[in-house]
Design a protein around this nucleic acid. Structure first.
Length: 274
DNA sequence: TCCCAGGCTCTCT
DNA sequence: AGAGAGCATGGG
């Protein structure tokens, strides 16, 4: 792990490797981070608003206390993981290695489970710019207003709503799915935090009970919200890539870190298609 | 305008 | 078990 220094409300992650803000915050795994014109990224997670920038090879976080960093942001940015070792593991597959090297600044964010679940329910049959808009309206309408941003809504708040109440966010047919998820979580039927401690298969089966949650959305919730990095979400882009470049199969060397491989491939093929 | 989007549900074989 | 239509909405 890198050296970390604290100064007032700033955190300096010194000589940060495998951590590009642009790649990590705008690769399609999270939808609420915004790039300022001056290289400053801003956003809110866990109800905490921060700003980040890259400076002389360091990552500088503004608006986070030492305690916030140690209790929340360290895990959020997956700072305990050695991504260089993961990429080395992927080098056994030529194409995966190329994808990894093109996107080696991506870290898999450990988002709050409910936010990840709702975000990827919203993502289905949808495009990324519109997903961001729907989520932003969801937060502005139903999230707690903090000093500089709206937090993601609590399940308990959404559980009391009807699909008509969600009309302002213009999520279309997904509204009823969001509410079903919120009700199961708020009602205690599904404990998302305990899902993170269960095995992948068992946790996945539980998520699949939610209306509007199929294999892909469940895998995204598990990967981005529960730390199950063996999850490998297959969306239209990944399915195309698997058949075009990998003979339809997940490369064997991705085993144990398939979710990271998936995100590298997703980023790689989308960059190439631009 | 038209196609499609980080899919899923429902129905029909 | 597998295939296909339908779904709300709007970005490009």
């Amino acid at each position: 792990m890198n050296d970390v220094f604290f100064e007032k409300d700033k955190v300096y992650i010194k000589n940060a490797k495998n951590f590009s803000l642009a790649q990590t915050l705008d690769c399609g795994q999270a939808f609420r981070w915004k790039a300022g014109g001056d290289g400053v990224w801003s956003g809110i997670a866990g109800g905490k608003y921060i700003e980040l920038k890259e400076q002389n090879g360091d990552i500088v976080i503004s608006g986070a206390s030492k305690r916030d960093f140690e209790e929340f942001w360290f895990d959020y940015f997956d700072l305990g993981r050695d991504y260089a070792a993961v990429i080395k593991q992927f080098s056994a597959d030529k194409t995966l290695f190329a994808a990894a090297n093109a996107s080696s600044g991506i870290r898999i964010l450990r988002q709050e489970p409910f936010e990840a679940l709702c975000s990827f329910i919203i993502s289905q049959n949808n495009n990324i710019p519109r997903i961001k808009g729907i989520i932003e309206r969801l937060c502005e309408n139903f999230g707690e207003k903090k000093e500089k941003a709206y937090a993601f809504p609590e399940a308990e708040v959404l559980a009391r709503l009807t699909p008509d109440d969600l009309a302002p966010i213009r999520s279309g047919f997904r509204a009823k799915y969001i509410i079903d998820a919120a009700r199961r979580v708020a009602g205690g039927e599904i404990d998302l935090n305990s899902l993170c401690k269960l095995g992948y298969d068992e946790a996945r089966e539980i998520l699949l009970k939610i209306k509007g949650v199929g294999p892909k959305v469940a895998d995204c919730a598990l990967l981005y919200g529960c730390g199950h990095i063996e999850a490998f979400p297959k969306d239209v882009w990944i399915k195309r890539a698997l058949s075009d470049y990998f003979g339809g199969e997940i490369p064997a060397c991705a085993k144990g870190a398939a979710g990271i491989a998936q995100q590298y491939i997703f980023y790689y093929i989308r960059e190439k298609s631009k």
